[in-house]
Protein backbone atom coordinates (compact mmCIF):
# COMPACT_ATOMS: atom_id res chain seq x y z
CA UNK A 1 0.00 0.00 0.00
CA UNK A 2 2.84 2.39 0.87
CA UNK A 3 4.24 2.28 -2.71
CA UNK A 4 1.00 3.66 -4.12
CA UNK A 5 0.64 7.34 -5.01
CA UNK A 6 -1.85 9.49 -3.10
CA UNK A 7 -4.16 9.52 -6.12
CA UNK A 8 -4.05 5.69 -6.39
CA UNK A 9 -4.82 5.43 -2.68
CA UNK A 10 -7.75 7.82 -3.07
CA UNK A 11 -9.07 5.65 -5.94
CA UNK A 12 -8.85 2.60 -3.67
CA UNK A 13 -10.81 4.45 -0.95
CA UNK A 14 -13.42 5.43 -3.54
CA UNK A 15 -13.70 1.74 -4.44
CA UNK A 16 -14.31 0.86 -0.79
CA UNK A 17 -10.89 -0.09 0.65
CA UNK A 18 -11.05 1.47 4.13
CA UNK A 19 -7.43 0.56 4.97
CA UNK A 20 -6.22 2.73 2.10
CA UNK A 21 -7.67 5.68 3.97
CA UNK A 22 -5.53 4.70 6.98
CA UNK A 23 -2.46 5.18 4.77
CA UNK A 24 -3.78 8.59 3.69
CA UNK A 25 -4.24 9.56 7.36
CA UNK A 26 -0.65 8.49 8.07
CA UNK A 27 0.70 10.54 5.16
CA UNK A 28 -1.29 13.69 5.76
CA UNK A 29 -1.80 13.98 9.51
CA UNK A 30 1.44 15.88 10.12
CA UNK A 31 1.42 18.21 7.08
CA UNK A 32 -2.22 19.11 7.78
CA UNK A 33 -1.49 19.73 11.47
CA UNK A 34 1.43 22.05 10.52
CA UNK A 35 -0.72 23.95 8.05
CA UNK A 36 -3.73 24.28 10.36
CA UNK A 37 -1.53 25.32 13.27
CA UNK A 38 0.20 28.02 11.26
CA UNK A 39 -3.05 29.35 9.83
CA UNK A 40 -5.20 29.25 12.98
CA UNK A 41 -2.55 29.80 15.72
CA UNK A 42 -4.34 27.31 17.95
CA UNK A 43 -3.16 25.02 20.75
CA UNK A 44 -2.16 21.43 19.92
CA UNK A 45 -5.48 20.01 21.13
CA UNK A 46 -7.58 22.31 18.98
CA UNK A 47 -5.32 21.61 15.99
CA UNK A 48 -5.70 17.84 16.49
CA UNK A 49 -9.49 18.24 16.47
CA UNK A 50 -9.35 20.27 13.29
CA UNK A 51 -7.05 17.71 11.62
CA UNK A 52 -9.46 14.96 12.57
CA UNK A 53 -12.43 16.95 11.25
CA UNK A 54 -10.51 17.59 8.02
CA UNK A 55 -9.68 13.92 7.50
CA UNK A 56 -13.23 12.82 8.31
CA UNK A 57 -14.62 15.39 5.90
CA UNK A 58 -12.05 14.17 3.36
CA UNK A 59 -13.39 10.63 3.70
CA UNK A 60 -17.03 11.73 3.49
CA UNK A 61 -16.39 13.74 0.33
CA UNK A 62 -13.78 11.53 -1.36
CA UNK A 63 -16.17 10.53 -4.14
CA UNK A 64 -16.01 14.18 -5.23
CA UNK A 65 -12.25 13.86 -5.74
CA UNK A 66 -11.24 13.71 -9.38
CA UNK A 67 -8.14 11.52 -9.80
CA UNK A 68 -6.86 13.91 -12.52
CA UNK A 69 -6.34 16.45 -9.71
CA UNK A 70 -3.50 16.35 -7.19
CA UNK A 71 -4.75 14.71 -4.00
CA UNK A 72 -2.58 16.90 -1.74
CA UNK A 73 -4.18 20.07 -3.18
CA UNK A 74 -7.63 18.56 -2.69
CA UNK A 75 -7.08 17.58 0.96
CA UNK A 76 -5.47 20.95 1.73
CA UNK A 77 -8.56 22.56 0.19
CA UNK A 78 -10.69 20.58 2.69
CA UNK A 79 -8.39 21.83 5.50
CA UNK A 80 -8.69 25.39 4.19
CA UNK A 81 -12.50 25.13 4.37
CA UNK A 82 -12.25 23.76 7.94
CA UNK A 83 -10.05 26.74 8.92
CA UNK A 84 -12.56 29.18 7.40
CA UNK A 85 -15.38 27.48 9.36
CA UNK A 86 -13.23 27.72 12.47
CA UNK A 87 -12.66 31.47 11.96
CA UNK A 88 -16.40 31.99 11.59
CA UNK A 89 -16.91 30.50 15.03
CA UNK A 90 -13.77 31.65 16.86
CA UNK A 91 -11.33 34.50 17.12
CA UNK A 92 -7.60 34.30 16.48
CA UNK A 93 -5.28 33.85 19.43
CA UNK A 94 -1.66 34.91 19.76
CA UNK A 95 1.01 32.22 20.11
CA UNK A 96 3.40 32.02 23.04
CA UNK A 97 7.18 32.44 22.59
CA UNK A 98 7.81 28.67 22.73
CA UNK A 99 5.25 28.07 20.04
CA UNK A 100 6.87 30.78 17.89
CA UNK A 101 10.23 29.01 18.08
CA UNK A 102 8.58 25.89 16.69
CA UNK A 103 6.56 27.64 14.04
CA UNK A 104 9.45 29.57 12.51
CA UNK A 105 11.55 26.47 11.86
CA UNK A 106 12.36 26.05 8.15
CA UNK A 107 11.74 29.73 7.47
CA UNK A 108 15.16 30.20 5.81
CA UNK A 109 13.70 30.68 2.33
CA UNK A 110 11.22 33.29 3.57
CA UNK A 111 13.95 35.19 5.43
CA UNK A 112 16.06 35.14 2.28
CA UNK A 113 13.18 36.43 0.15
CA UNK A 114 12.34 39.16 2.63
CA UNK A 115 16.02 40.23 2.61
CA UNK A 116 16.18 40.51 6.38
CA UNK A 117 18.74 39.41 8.95
CA UNK A 118 18.59 35.84 10.30
CA UNK A 119 18.43 37.20 13.84
CA UNK A 120 14.99 38.60 12.99
CA UNK A 121 13.54 35.05 12.78
CA UNK A 122 11.24 35.51 15.78
CA UNK A 123 9.95 38.77 14.42
CA UNK A 124 9.01 36.97 11.21
CA UNK A 125 6.42 34.83 12.97
CA UNK A 126 5.10 37.80 14.93
CA UNK A 127 4.64 39.55 11.58
CA UNK A 128 3.02 36.48 9.96
CA UNK A 129 0.62 36.34 12.89
CA UNK A 130 -0.50 39.89 12.14
CA UNK A 131 -1.17 39.16 8.47
CA UNK A 132 -4.73 38.73 7.22
CA UNK A 133 -5.66 35.03 6.98
CA UNK A 134 -5.60 34.94 3.15
CA UNK A 135 -2.01 36.25 3.06
CA UNK A 136 -0.94 34.00 5.94
CA UNK A 137 -2.30 30.99 4.06
CA UNK A 138 -0.38 31.84 0.89
CA UNK A 139 2.86 32.35 2.85
CA UNK A 140 2.33 29.14 4.85
CA UNK A 141 1.59 26.99 1.80
CA UNK A 142 4.48 28.38 -0.24
CA UNK A 143 7.24 28.73 2.33
CA UNK A 144 6.37 26.09 4.91
CA UNK A 145 4.55 23.43 2.88
CA UNK A 146 6.61 23.82 -0.31
CA UNK A 147 3.57 24.11 -2.56
CA UNK A 148 3.86 25.62 -6.03
CA UNK A 149 1.70 28.58 -7.16
CA UNK A 150 -0.32 26.10 -9.25
CA UNK A 151 -1.03 23.92 -6.19
CA UNK A 152 -1.86 26.95 -4.02
CA UNK A 153 -4.29 28.12 -6.70
CA UNK A 154 -6.02 24.72 -6.43
CA UNK A 155 -6.22 24.99 -2.64
CA UNK A 156 -7.53 28.55 -2.59
CA UNK A 157 -9.51 28.23 -5.84
CA UNK A 158 -8.15 31.26 -7.61
CA UNK A 159 -5.86 32.01 -10.54
CA UNK A 160 -2.08 31.53 -10.29
CA UNK A 161 -1.59 35.18 -11.20
CA UNK A 162 -3.77 36.13 -8.24
CA UNK A 163 -1.58 33.95 -6.01
CA UNK A 164 1.46 35.85 -7.31
CA UNK A 165 -0.22 39.17 -6.50
CA UNK A 166 -1.21 37.93 -3.02
CA UNK A 167 2.33 36.67 -2.39
CA UNK A 168 3.88 40.01 -3.35
CA UNK A 169 1.41 41.86 -1.14
CA UNK A 170 2.06 39.44 1.73
CA UNK A 171 5.84 39.93 1.46
CA UNK A 172 5.41 43.70 1.28
CA UNK A 173 3.22 43.66 4.39
CA UNK A 174 5.68 41.36 6.19
CA UNK A 175 8.62 43.65 5.44
CA UNK A 176 6.63 46.64 6.66
CA UNK A 177 5.59 44.85 9.86
CA UNK A 178 9.16 43.69 10.57
CA UNK A 179 10.56 47.20 10.02
CA UNK A 180 7.94 48.83 12.29
CA UNK A 181 8.61 46.19 14.97
Amino acid sequence: MSQLTDEQLAKKVQDGTVDAFGEIVERYEKPLARYIRRVTNQEQEEVEDLVQETLISGYENIQGFDSRQKFSSWIFRVAHNKCIDFFRKNKLKTTTTDEKEELIESSEKLIEDLEIEKEDKKMVWEAIEKLEVKYREVVTLYYFEDKSYEEISDVLRTTTSNIGVMMNRAKGKLRKLIITN
Binding site: V18, G22, V25, Q52, L55, I56, Y59, Q63
Partner: peptide, 30 residues
Protein backbone atom coordinates in the same frame (compact mmCIF):
# COMPACT_ATOMS: atom_id res chain seq x y z
CA UNK B 1 1.59 0.37 13.93
CA UNK B 2 -1.40 2.68 13.76
CA UNK B 3 -1.39 6.04 15.50
CA UNK B 4 -4.21 7.49 17.59
CA UNK B 5 -5.84 9.66 14.92
CA UNK B 6 -5.74 6.85 12.37
CA UNK B 7 -7.33 4.44 14.84
CA UNK B 8 -10.10 6.86 15.82
CA UNK B 9 -10.94 7.68 12.20
CA UNK B 10 -10.89 4.08 10.97
CA UNK B 11 -13.03 3.03 13.95
CA UNK B 12 -15.59 5.73 13.09
CA UNK B 13 -15.64 4.56 9.46
CA UNK B 14 -15.97 0.87 10.34
CA UNK B 15 -18.73 1.50 12.90
CA UNK B 16 -20.69 3.45 10.27
CA UNK B 17 -20.52 6.70 12.26
CA UNK B 18 -18.70 8.31 9.31
CA UNK B 19 -20.07 7.51 5.87
CA UNK B 20 -18.89 8.32 2.37
CA UNK B 21 -21.29 10.49 0.39
CA UNK B 22 -22.39 8.77 -2.84
CA UNK B 23 -20.69 9.71 -6.13
CA UNK B 24 -23.99 10.68 -7.80
CA UNK B 25 -24.42 13.50 -5.30
CA UNK B 26 -21.25 15.19 -6.53
CA UNK B 27 -22.21 14.56 -10.15
CA UNK B 28 -25.64 16.14 -9.55
CA UNK B 29 -24.00 19.14 -7.80
CA UNK B 30 -21.62 19.69 -10.74
Amino acid sequence: MRNKTEEIILEKIRSGEVKMKPKWRFEVEK
